[in-house]
Nucleic acid binder design. Structure first.
Lengths: 244, 244
DNA sequence: ATTTTAAGTGTATTTTATACGCTTATTTTA
DNA sequence: TAAAATAAGCGTATAAAATACACTTAAAAT
């Protein structure tokens, strides 16, 4: 935390390595765009910034990368700090590196996007961190280029969800086919055919049917399924596409 | 180039902004994985590193990001410095940010991949910079995590080429359908059906047929085509997929 | 004139996507 | 307690796309 922190990254300060000596260190941030699904709606986690500039503006969560942690590690740390969750699906979104993007300093941000299943606890926990889950339709203006990041994240989520079953990251371990359909319809903001959706997902053979039913949304009840990871890996190895 | 370069990124050195003050700047590099196509084979541009550590090892081209340039700008500069080319197709690949990835210092690398049409000049020019074009089958061991970057770049190229016509970036303005097929077969390392390939690409209606023929590869000669950018943009807007 | 070869055309078959009617299990209500 | 209502689930018919492969053509080489 002291001033000396500005330099330790340069281990060979007085070496003859011209290129490394001439280089200028820059602040690097890891920002996480976090999506959640509460079985009804796709949501985005935002929080009220505590520091200037743009204090009290809405932003995605993030932190500067420490000298002794990798960029991915920093993202995992950030996610843990704000949500208390570990082992969350997360992957890199991109680098935001314009010179003037942060008036506070020259900061480069590596953005990530993460997917979370929302239960009661998660929604509650958000409150305690001055954070809030927003429906996709009601996202407030964001600071810096965070609006841009969120836009890119949504696009990536849509693209990604087509050929990797990341949708499953947003559902509980056991889920029904109508629930899965609802999620995909939320991601793509469309209304797909119930019967064809079922046919397609079942034909992929990556779902394990359970004997239990979920009766929360209909009188008849819908059978619960689990995602079959082993079968999915086989599919990928054989080069079969997963397109929903 | 002087020592003062270490600090200017922090504009508010003595402000009350705790977070920014506590943050540790890090070296940021922009690295470019450059693919080229010489009408026969897909190739990768590598060069012999001039500085320690790993002097004389093969690496992709790159440079540290300057305080007064964006990360993307840095990539464009690097590409220009090494190839003399501008307006090249390039897009971000990802961030490589492990703590120990570069023993010379804590360096985070933002990687990009670029596509270049290879003529005589380009191949010659490479020589002058201690650079060399390698066929994909004969890539030498690379320094640091550059092998990893190249692997990722190839994967991304393959994925990307399926639904964006980036293949056209690798061909001259006028090209024949057999040439285009050869390129896609090189990217995917397969042998697709000549007739079906033609049918598919023509059905997309993004090629403008010219009256000229290219006779360099057959007695009969093959008609030359141009890529119809306007038509392509229309397609994208209508949400039509481009899959080869 | 005949052969050779890549380029180009056409067609038949299989696979996949889409549209949509019908049945089922269960709860509500009449 | 029978009828109505509804989400879940099943099946089938049609359209579109992918694949396989036979055939024709243009021009140079023999």
């Amino acid at each position: 935390m002291e001033q000396q922190n500005f330099m330790p990254v340069l281990m060979k300060k007085n070496s003859t390595n011209f290129f490394y000596q001439a280089a200028s260190p820059i602040l690097v941030a890891a920002d996480c765009i976090i999506f959640g699904f509460d079985r009804e709606e796709l949501k985005l986690l935002l929080f009220k910034r505590k520091v200037e500039p743009f204090k009290d503006g809405w932003s995605v969560i993030g932190s500067f990368v420490e000298p002794n942690e990798g960029v991915n590690e920093a993202a995992v740390r950030v996610l843990g700090e704000y949500t208390g969750l570990e082992n969350i699906f997360m992957e890199p979104l991109g680098c935001y590196g314009e010179v003037g993007r942060d008036p506070g300093a020259r900061v480069i941000s590596q953005a990530f996007f993460a997917l979370i299943r929302l239960g009661e606890e998660e929604t509650q926990k958000a409150q305690t961190h001055q954070a809030h889950w927003f429906g996709l339709e009601s996202i407030p203006p964001l600071i810096l280029d965070h609006g841009h990041m969120v836009h890119d994240a949504l696009e990536k989520l849509r693209r990604k969800a087509r050929y990797r079953p990341i949708g499953f990251e947003l559902l509980p371990e056991k889920f029904t086919i109508p629930q899965l359909k609802k999620l995909y319809d939320a991601i793509y903001q469309r209304e797909s055919d119930r019967r064809n959706f079922r046919k397609k997902i079942l034909s992929m053979d990556v779902l394990k049917k359970l004997d239990e039913k979920d009766k929360s949304t209909s009188r008849k009840g819908a059978f619960l399924y689990k995602f079959d990871q082993i079968r999915y890996k086989e599919m990928i190895e054989k080069g079969i596409d997963f397109v929903l």
